[in-house]
Design a protein around this nucleic acid. Structure first.
Lengths: 327, 327
DNA sequence: CTGAAAGCGCTTACAG
DNA sequence: CTGAAAGCGCTTACAG
């Protein structure tokens, strides 16, 4: 049904060899201007387009990057996705996209990437087993974890310096003389939630100030419920720090529904700076993850691995942005 | 640097021909159980994986679908993306993902898909020029517009029956005895906004009731601004119908910021039923687009075109869901 | 600057 | 059930 026009047909019509047609479509190859024009004309007329698959087979370069993503729920990752595809496109890569439902990427999804010979894999918001990392290493295909980190995994990782960020937030909260301090975690098995908790709680531990830890799961609904429950138990915190913005937004809405004044009675702080956080109705104070920078670093690590082996861990800083939910 | 293990190497080690190795990895091909086991073992040991590129070259099937998406801002499309990739994966397709910044998909993006010989293209939340549609038709590659429609374009289209939906909403509003009725449009050059406006406005036109049209652009910010402006001019509508949920949410927040009681003073209705609309703090009444059904239809149309030519337009119905922003 | 030829890693008639 | 061989559409030394 579908007939692919090949270089041979163009060659015949243009009265050149197939090699010459190929050269016309290979940047940098030497072809006389006259020949080039003729070939281009015929190609246009025949609707010819070089077959990337055949080309990849011989050049061993596919220009494809596998991108796996979880948690399509969190708007943060949509921004991430948009930036990744744009930057990757600008560098001439295509994106093979996989949406995964598990916290850990499955063998099946990785096989998929391998079959297509992707030149690199980016995993956002999910983890890999060390088995898979090893397998990938054997196949010499570089992997970068985006916004996740595991010191036992021998692969690249790019994330925010969560510990330091949470520490800064704690410092900020502390200078506001808060006593009743609440941290709502994200999914507790994620490095992001663990690190943010560590940075936040440790600061106060050193000062002998207790922090109430509530186990969330990075969803709005859970944070809403937890906060509501808190208020119903007559516990009105001075500040709630949510492990991400969605969490903080859930807490914020629960506070509002209970008619707690923000920031007067309770302050709320998030993490990510998703678009919604700056909506007039929320105006959430939060930690800005520098997505662009993180994406750039991720791509840089991947490209670096095309020349040399080994893996690197990159932590970017980001910054606190003060809006209306903190004093 | 990267060395691909080929079927030849497996064949040598397993003491069979390369053809046999190939057969082991071709479902339905006849191989003796004994041979199969031996080959599988060696393959495992060598970390062998059939090369999808080489396979595609000869079978003329790539199992790749090109998915182009705009407006990564609207959460509706994230849900769409998640469902598409899952359903496509379940059918054995890979997704080549492109994020586009223009309302109209560019030639460049399409070329990209063509080079990789995708078996079908899905365009969500964006349009195509008729030029490109023609080119695609010449290349026999089926296209389906998702949530967009243009009667002049000779390609498949799947969308909600927006006219009827908006008509139903109008009917609902009407039985509540509203007089001051506002419609906030989306991007005015989109079929979705146009159709929703048509269905809504025509109903009232027939009754001689005027509808105030405000030109939005499918963003929260714009809707917030327009609504705020309205209230500041002392015009408090009985109902605001936003062309999508994000628009309605912007209007809703503006109303709240002006301390207008919802739904008592002003009712608000959206379209899409994104996750946020059911957040406790919003509880937006809206029209549910049946995404799953729409995605299924889209894939069905694409697969249909592998057997027969021609194009179809599918309209699904969806339903109104009453929450707290309407009486 | 250009052509003939080898080869990338597969599938699939064809023959046995 | 299995192997030898042709061929998918390209790139790229090699030779001229």
């Amino acid at each position: 049904m579908k007939r692919i026009v090949s270089a041979i047909e163009v060659a015949r019509l243009a009265n050149v060899s197939q090699s010459t047609v190929s050269r016309v479509f290979t940047p940098g190859a030497s072809v006389s201007e006259k020949t080039r024009q003729r070939v281009l004309e015929v190609a246009e007329q025949l609707n010819y387009q070089p077959n990337a698959l055949a080309r990849s087979l011989i050049t061993k370069r596919t220009n494809m990057i596998g991108l796996a993503m979880k948690d399509i729920q969190n708007p943060f990752y949509h921004e991430v996705l948009g930036i990744f595809t744009n930057k990757l496109k600008a560098k001439g890569y295509s994106v093979l996209f996989v949406y995964t439902e598990n916290e850990e990427i499955q063998q099946e999804e990785i096989n998929h990437f391998l079959e297509y010979n992707v030149e690199g894999i980016i995993i956002t918001d999910a983890m890999l087993s060390s088995n898979i990392v090893t397998k990938l290493k054997n196949n010499h295909i570089p992997v970068t974890l985006f916004n996740r980190y595991d010191k036992n995994l021998e692969c690249n990782s790019v994330s925010c310096d969560n510990i330091n960020a949470a520490n800064e937030i704690a410092k900020y909260v502390d200078h506001l003389y808060c006593e009743k301090i609440v941290f709502i975690t994200g999914k507790i098995n994620t490095s992001t939630s663990q690190e943010r908790q560590e940075g936040f709680v440790n600061y106060f531990k050193n000062k002998g100030i207790p922090v109430e830890i509530l186990e969330g799961d990075y969803t709005y609904e859970r944070a809403f419920f937890l906060t509501k429950e808190l208020i119903e138990k007559d516990y009105v915190p001075d500040v709630i720090f949510g492990a991400n913005d969605i969490t903080a937004l859930g807490a914020l809405d629960a506070l509002k529904s209970k008619e707690i004044k923000v920031p007067e009675q309770t302050m709320v702080i998030g993490f990510d700076d998703i678009k919604m956080s700056s909506w007039p109705n929320y105006n959430l104070s939060t930690w800005v993850q520098p997505i662009e920078e993180m994406v750039d670093e991720t791509i840089r690590l991947l490209e670096r691995n095309q020349r040399e082996t080994g893996h690197k861990t990159v932590k970017v800083q980001g910054k606190f942005i003060h809006r209306q939910t903190t004093k």
